[in-house]
Every structure is written in C-alpha cells, then in structure tokens.
C-alpha cells in the first residue's frame, strides 16, 4: 500500500516537535543550577573572595 506523502510529513513533524521539546527541557535543566549558583554567590553578607574579585586582583598585577 502506498503511504500518502502528507501523512509521512506529519509524522516527521510530530517527531521533530517531540525531539525539540526534550532538547528544550534538557537545556532548561542544565541552566537552572548555573542560575542558582550565581544567586548563591550574590546573596552572601560582606566581602567574599569570589571569582570576580580574584579576576580584579589579577588585573592589578599587570
């Protein structure tokens, strides 16, 4: 039996949507811990030797 071309393209479309959704979810999941760690670095009270501060000290040694 010959499968109509339109049906195939619809299947491909649905497959693509599914794969795209999974990829988006993975990207969000990967991003979340980064955002959290940035916030955790920012809310600390007082002076902290952060990466930002370390970079500043390095620039002064030039």
């Amino acid at each position: 039996m010959k499968v109509p071309a339109s049906k195939l393209s619809r299947r491909n479309f649905l497959l693509a949507v599914g794969a795209g959704g999974v990829a988006t979810a993975a990207a969000v999941a990967n991003k979340a811990p980064q955002a959290q760690s940035k916030k955790a670095e920012a809310v600390g009270k007082g002076y902290q030797l952060t990466e930002h501060v370390r970079k500043y000290y390095d620039t002064t040694k030039v």
């Binding site: 670095e41 030797l49 952060t50 501060v53 500043y56 000290y57 002064t60 030039v62």
Partner: peptide, 28 residues
C-alpha cells in the same frame, strides 16, 4: 554583597587605585 569590590577601584584604567583586602593590595 554582590561579591564584587568598589566600582572606582575596579574601573581604574591604570589600576592606580587599589581597593579590597588590605593584605592582598599591600602585597600587590
């Protein structure tokens, strides 16, 4: 509180103005 140092010291183009931990900047 943001984990940074004073803007003036960080912005200084020749790093003539040092700001931060006294022991570190004295050593520099």
């Amino acid at each position: 509180a943001e984990g940074k140092l004073p803007a003036c010291a960080e912005m200084c183009s020749t790093k003539a103005l040092l700001g931060g931990d006294g022991d570190v900047i004295a050593d520099i």
